[in-house]
Amino acid sequence: MKVNWEGIFPAVTTKFTADDELDLQMFETNIKAQLEAGVDGIILGGTLGEASSLMDDEKDTLVKKTVEIVDGKVPVVMNIAEQTTKGAILAAEKAKANGASGLMMLPPMRYKADDRETVEYYKAVANSTDLPIMVYNNPVDYKIEVTLDMFAELAGCENIQAVKESTRDISNVTRMRNRFGDRFSILSGVDTLALESLVMGADGWVAGLVCAFPKETVAIYRLQKAGRIEEAREIYRWFLPLLELDINAHLVQNIKLAEVATGIGTENVRAPRLPLVGEERAHVLGLIEEGLKTRPTLPDYLNL
């Protein structure tokens, strides 16, 4: 299935049972809620998906199950976060074999590769597969930035098609457009900068709080795309205190609590992560409760 790198791509959480097994029933409930809300793709195995704690066979299961659930409605994108080029190539092969339509790729993990090494890493994987690739550019969390000069080198790989822009520098959207035009699709990767990025010309949003609030997230995107910026802004202003739960070290626990509150998830995380406790838990629950209490009435955004 072709990946059109445009619109809302939830970076979905991985659901676990209380016995630390994959909870495929609740996972399916959440994916169906995303599809009903009108998302444009599903991303598996990102930070929110607790990728670093997943076993290889679990990743295989998640891709296969998601492909089955979406049934061709939207593309399924698998994140690649590997320590070696060999491992990344193998992960790309497995993702394709399991039915994924595209890849999201972080730079090499653990080892802080320099610019040349990072470019060669992306090129090697891109040249090993025909799956389309979105570069995950998040130097804040992963300490390696894919610069404009590096993107210029990667432009020769036709299947490197998009960037998840998570540098926290809103002007990077304009810098990418000024230098490359439409060569790369740009998707905002920071919930608290999403509407700003879309207004500045980003093509989409790799979203986090969408896991709990899919309709509100898609509504913001669709409204701004239709030029109804004021309506999008009002929903976004309501959403912002919740979106800030995504830019936090405990984003997985935060968002899973929100999924519980909206009935499409569980709180279970995989150790070493632990559920929130004490004042932190009370604070997050308070934000979620206030958000639910003041939840906006949405227009018919799917028919704009």
Rank of each mutant, 00 (worst) to 15 (best):
N4A: 11
N4H: 12
E6Q: 15
I8Y: 09
I8C: 11
V12A: 14
K15Q: 15
D19K: 14
E28H: 08
I31L: 13
A33L: 09
V39P: 08
I42G: 11
L44I: 03
L44G: 07
G46T: 09
G49P: 04
E50K: 09
A51K: 04
L54T: 05
L54A: 01
L54M: 15
D56T: 06
D57F: 12
D60P: 00
K65Y: 07
I69E: 02
D71G: 03
V74K: 04
V76S: 04
M78L: 13
K86Y: 07
G87W: 00
I89N: 01
A92E: 02
A97Q: 13
A97T: 10
G99Y: 05
A100E: 02
A100M: 06
A100L: 02
L103A: 05
L103W: 02
P108V: 12
Y111S: 14
K112M: 09
D115A: 14
R116V: 12
V119D: 05
E120A: 04
Y121F: 15
Y121Q: 05
Y122D: 10
A126H: 04
D130G: 07
I133E: 05
I133R: 05
M134N: 10
M134Q: 01
Y136V: 01
N138K: 02
P139F: 01
P139V: 10
Y142H: 14
K143L: 15
I144K: 00
E145V: 06
E145G: 04
E145T: 12
D149K: 01
F151T: 00
E153D: 15
D169Q: 11
I170N: 01
S171I: 11
N172E: 08
M176T: 05
R179F: 11
I186F: 09
L187K: 05
G189H: 10
G189W: 12
G189K: 11
V190C: 13
D191M: 08
D191T: 09
A194F: 06
A194W: 07
L195S: 08
M200I: 08
A202N: 05
G204H: 12
V206C: 11
V206K: 05
E216Q: 10
V218A: 02
I220A: 10
R222T: 04
L223N: 00
A226L: 06
R228W: 01
E230C: 00
L240P: 02
L245T: 01
A258T: 04
E259K: 13
G263Q: 08
T266W: 11
A271V: 10
A271T: 10
R273T: 00
R273I: 03
P275H: 13
P275C: 11
V277E: 11
E279G: 02
E279N: 14
R281D: 03
A282Y: 04
L285A: 13
L285K: 15
I288F: 04
E289K: 14
G291R: 12
T294H: 15
R295E: 02
P296T: 03
P296S: 11
P296A: 02
T297W: 04
Y301E: 00
